[in-house]
């Protein structure tokens, strides 16, 4: 089995379709995973070692073995799978995640905790600190 097919089989086991969310292979390709891997060259060796299997056993059994016997390879394969998936624009759209966005706000706007009385309750509960003059 080629590496790309092995990876997609593993990734689809890790990230199957569920509710509205698509399976890994429905929205992401092996090329996407390789692009992600370029951001993390430290994972390359483990990633390729993790795909060095013919998957005669099931994807789950292979991952189980990797998790027990080669933690670095397991970590590399799963890290690339999940990060590639959640970097995907369609997946982000379904999640309602715009990324770590910039948000405009008025720094001088009156905050709600000043007008709804909640901070007033904190003040009403009185001083919390222990004074120390003379000590």
């Amino acid at each position: 089995m080629s590496k790309d097919k092995t990876f997609l089989a593993l990734a689809d086991f890790l990230i199957p379709a569920h509710g509205e969310m698509p399976a890994f292979g429905s929205v992401c390709s092996f090329a996407d995973a390789e692009k992600a891997l370029d951001f993390r060259v430290d994972l390359k060796e483990g990633f390729h070692r993790g795909l060095d299997a013919d998957l005669a056993s099931s994807a789950e059994a292979h991952l189980e073995r990797l998790n027990k016997e080669d933690g670095a390879a397991f970590s590399a394969v799963t890290t690339i799978a999940i990060c590639t998936y959640y970097m995907n624009p369609r997946v982000r759209e379904l999640l309602g995640y715009p990324g770590q966005e910039s948000v405009l706000y008025d720094s001088k706007a009156t905050q709600i905790y000043l007008t709804d009385g909640s901070l007033g309750h904190v003040l009403a509960r009185g001083r919390k600190y222990r004074p120390t003059p003379g000590l």
Binding site: F13, L14, P16, L63, E64, T78, T79, I82
Partner: peptide, 25 residues
């Protein structure tokens, strides 16, 4: 997700399946 990176919320004895598949979603 608790699945990678920080292992903060992943028990050492936890099964990897607890964080993947339908559980991930």
């Amino acid at each position: 997700s608790g699945a990678i990176g920080s292992k903060v919320y992943v028990a050492e004895e936890g099964r990897f399946q607890d964080f993947w598949g339908a559980n991930l979603h």
